[in-house]
Design a protein around this nucleic acid. Structure first.
Ligand SMILES: [Mn+2]
Ligand SMILES: [Mn+2]
Ligand SMILES: [Zn+2]
Ligand SMILES: [Zn+2]
Lengths: 146, 146
DNA sequence: TTGCAAATGATAATCTTTCTCATTAATAGG
DNA sequence: CCTATTAATGAGAAAGATTATCATTTGCAA
């Protein structure tokens, strides 16, 4: 196989650590994901991956995001619109949440430890341990008061 | 048209109030929804509707939940699993949220004014007005300590 | 370097939801 | 009550996203 023109990404290393076979396609997709700081869907990932290495099919992108998600490497997000979107799982800093601009669709990330704690408490008081929080808020930019 | 064997439901009245044409099928679907206290998907609504009146097609159920949602009569929910689920919009009491049992899939509703207020504040401080909150938490029942 | 299990590419199948269009029914006005 | 108008419905086709199939290729352990 032809050698890639890019270095192994942090995600590629993670892939190896989990004992997943590191194919050329997976290395490419891992690179593209590490290089992204937004929330691409599969079509968009496919576009970015093909730029790096054309020997890739969309079926493999679907398979790979699923594999990475099952292994805790990726997080799947649902912002409505019918397609799943993906981002690298935050290993280090805590969960973050998403505010979606109602008019532009722009996704704005935020963290809030108070919210983390409150959700944890609510769920605990109901007799459960919190496994996953799925939260996104839609907002409309305020007219600046003058 | 044959007369229905059930009285007009609160949702049927709402339908009329909004100036929507009150067809037999809509009356049936409104009745079934008013009669439900869970979060059925379209297939399940269709099953329940057919029991009440077999002159109904699944296409009409899809059309009707969309219409009702656009008119603020129904709320669409996404608990994962690929199909939308629906419940009557709470006119009176505030928003509620959903805890999903990770093992059984059971949906448990809860309200929390502190959470309402916190989300509102977070969004406002980011310069937005809160439009919609999409929140569900997945939890696993705690082993009872002894 | 080889062998083999696992991954890939191409495309078919699946699943949910929406659309199309001929037929039917609700409602306003007489 | 009757009729006309217009919207709603039923059946099935179509669309859009994701998963499955299967022949071929490839990573990697021996
Ligand atoms: Mn969804
Ligand atoms: Mn409380
Ligand atoms: Zn994010
Ligand atoms: Zn609910």
């Amino acid at each position: 196989m032809k050698e890639p023109t890019f270095p192994d990404s942090p995600l590629a290393d993670l892939c190896r650590e989990r004992g997943l076979k590191l194919t050329g396609q997976r290395r490419t997709i891992a690179f593209v994901l590490s290089d992204s700081d937004d929330h691409p869907d599969v079509e968009e990932l496919y576009r970015r991956a093909v730029e790096v290495d054309p020997r890739i099919s969309i079926a493999t992108v679907y398979r790979t995001v699923r594999l990475f998600e099952e292994n805790g490497i990726l997080q799947r997000r649902d912002f409505g619109g019918g397609r799943a979107r993906y981002e690298v799982a935050d290993g280090d800093h805590g969960d973050h949440y998403h505010l979606i601009d109602a008019d532009s669709g722009k996704v704005i990330e935020f963290e809030n430890p108070e919210l983390d704690a409150l959700l944890d408490n609510i769920v605990r008081e109901m007799g459960y341990d919190l496994v996953t929080t799925r939260l996104s808020v839609v907002g409309r930019r305020k007219a600046k008061p003058r």
